[in-house]
Write a protein that binds this DNA or RNA. Structure first.
Lengths: 233, 233
DNA sequence: TGAATAGTGTCTTTCAGACAATATGCC
DNA sequence: GGCATATTGTCTGAAAGACACTATTCA
């Protein structure tokens, strides 16, 4: 029997939920998708998209399902973040949530987005409204994880289209890290990683010189450095 | 109402468990604590110490409680690993487990260990018996996390006594990483981090020159490098 | 006094970080 | 032709990595 809510709005048993921190870059800033809650508690407040895990699906599948209800895109980068299990994080009763974060490219998202029943909106992560439950903490955790992971994996590429310019790639790093990077050092570093392939195409942006488009040679997100502070390579 | 098991041994509702990968160094090898299962399923098989989360406690507290049932030590380094939520990972029904890993110093452990009702034993991580459920996967995940984290945090220190020699510290790194390290480079690196304080005490080990004992200056596990492959420092 | 581990220094190479001028397409 | 962004190279300093000998204690 799955966890359900009784007429008082209290869950019976352990309810397991998933919450997804869905991020994209839009207009040069990092944005987070929030949905407006239509029911108590926190009715009218903004919250992370998410919901209960059904008895027959894996937790990962539940997160994927929630994500696809919002985006209708497959093949999204989705990573489990952390499980929040404080007894009183949900006023209705015991709800343990497994948090995930996901990165999407805005262009792909917008093309496939469909009409929603509940209100949803993108907010700049630097100016978020008050969030329901402990969702603010989850968002902060996701941003911290992302800022760490961008340094030693290729997660940053998930925010871009299949073809991208080096300036766009640098912009994605700058937005996530919240700081400007030196263009020459950034390009040198990226190109010497050997994971980018220049195409013959260029992107014209206005009346200036068009930029070469690159593609990512790896099929998925990879780890960049095995070396650490101790292990020799 | 908490998740319980009915006479058929099937859980009703979502049962949430915690499993703990408890590691120590003994005799120069990394060892894992396993307990023998006394009930079906997997009766007689070795498994990670763990159990169900009760309705009133946080998931972290449940992990801590399980750990203290095994070790009777407080102040252990305990970190949440990952949540495993496949529907069929437990033949009795739906059990979602939140995995943790913990590191203890063998000397402290042994002093405070108490009699157990269930059989428990340390196994070298390189030669583990077949494990119940998906516990093997959890162990592998923990070891991978540990190998990563030792490179940019001070988790490795958790395996040592309060005072330790640099050779012991190096040994802890070598055992976790599974490779030999250069003594001079290791010492240079460790000392220049500025987190070790030499004491006036020495440790005599036999008929050779005694080694200086050091202590760790930080109150807890810290992150060592903010710098990554992109961010300047 | 010798067995056994502790402890130390240098050189080379790699890479991060700072820094500015030229190239090119389009209006 | 000029505007706006794309693209490119060098120098310096810090740290990693390779490498071998001396110091010290105690049995």
């Amino acid at each position: 029997m799955p966890a359900t809510s009784n007429p008082n709005g209290h869950f019976t048993g352990h309810a397991i939920a998933v919450d997804v921190v869905l991020l994209t870059i839009l207009g040069g800033t990092l944005k987070l998708l929030l949905v407006k809650r239509e029911q108590a508690p926190y009715r009218g407040a903004w919250a992370l998209p998410g919901g209960l895990v059904s008895p027959e699906e894996s937790v990962d599948d539940a997160a994927l399902r929630e994500l696809q209800e919002e985006t209708n895109i497959g093949n999204i980068y989705l990573e489990q973040l952390y499980t929040f299990g404080e007894p009183n994080r949900d006023p209705r009763g015991r709800v343990i949530t497994v948090a995930y974060y996901a990165l999407v490219n805005w262009q792909q998202f917008q093309l496939k987005a469909r009409q929603r029943v509940t209100e949803a909106s993108w907010f700049p992560v630097k100016r978020l409204p008050p969030l329901a439950f402990d969702h603010r903490r989850i968002v902060d955790y996701a941003l911290e994880r992302l800022r760490n992971k961008i340094n030693y994996t290729t997660v940053g590429f998930q925010l871009l289209s299949r073809q991208f310019t080096l300036t766009e790639l640098q912009g994605s790093y700058e937005v996530i890290l919240g700081q400007r990077l030196d263009k020459r050092n950034f390009r040198r570093k990226m190109l010497q990683l050997g994971i980018l392939k220049g195409t013959r195409d260029f992107k014209a942006n206005g009346r200036q010189r068009p930029a070469r488009l690159y593609t990512f040679t790896e099929p998925k997100v990879i780890k960049l450095q095995e070396k650490g502070i101790i292990v020799p390579y």
